[in-house]
């Protein structure tokens, strides 16, 4: 792994692609799947219990979580339970790609809105369209936002420029 995370505070896309939690090309082809971008050994484990399909294994507490890609259905339930906001669900199986991330700011984006997709460093990557906003009571105020982006940019995009008040 490069030193980007500890020196700059974010993970380089290459580090994500080289990580053991990065799903295989075959798995990407079958539909939405979670990517767990939790690269340090920290005392944390709620993601394990968050997945009803047993797709996240984590033994002990400071061991890193591992994704069992064939069990994951890409539902996104784990995203809201992760206090590190380190889990994303991506879909690279269709013509248009999509990225789902946790969103805890107000005001909320709305379905259909045009937004600017950004990478892990917060830099603009492309224009995008909000396709889904999930706000369920179970998620305790962490909303899941899905945006549509070109498939080849799915690995880069991890968030969007925040919605300004009064927009």
């Amino acid at each position: 792994m490069s030193n980007s995370l500890i020196e700059k505070g974010y993970i380089e896309v290459e580090d994500v692609r080289n990580d053991s939690n990065y799903p295989s090309e075959e798995r990407f082809k079958t539909g939405a799947v979670a990517i767990i971008e939790c690269l340090q050994e920290i005392p944390c484990n709620p993601c394990k219990d968050a997945c009803p399909y047993g797709a996240i294994v984590l033994e002990g507490l400071t061991i890193r979580p591992q994704l069992i890609e064939d069990k994951c259905i890409g539902c996104g339930l784990c995203i809201a339970k992760c206090p590190g906001q380190a889990i994303f669900v991506v879909d690279k199986s269709k013509e248009e790609g999509s990225v789902t991330f946790p969103y805890e700011y107000l005001p909320l984006p709305e379905k259909g809105m045009s937004v600017t997709a950004v990478n892990r460093a917060g830099e603009p990557v492309c224009e995008a369209r909000v396709t889904k906003v999930v706000d369920s009571k179970k998620m305790n105020k962490t909303r899941l936002v899905t945006i549509a982006v070109p498939v080849e940019l799915v690995d880069e995009v991890r968030f969007m420029k925040r919605v300004e008040a009064g927009e």
Partner: peptide, 21 residues
């Protein structure tokens, strides 16, 4: 280097905030 957890740093980097080490 950033001294806290990378996942916490990641949240504010994504929102475009500079971290000057």
């Amino acid at each position: 280097r950033v001294s806290g957890y990378g996942v916490h740093a990641g949240k504010i980097k994504r929102a475009g905030v500079p971290i000057w080490t």
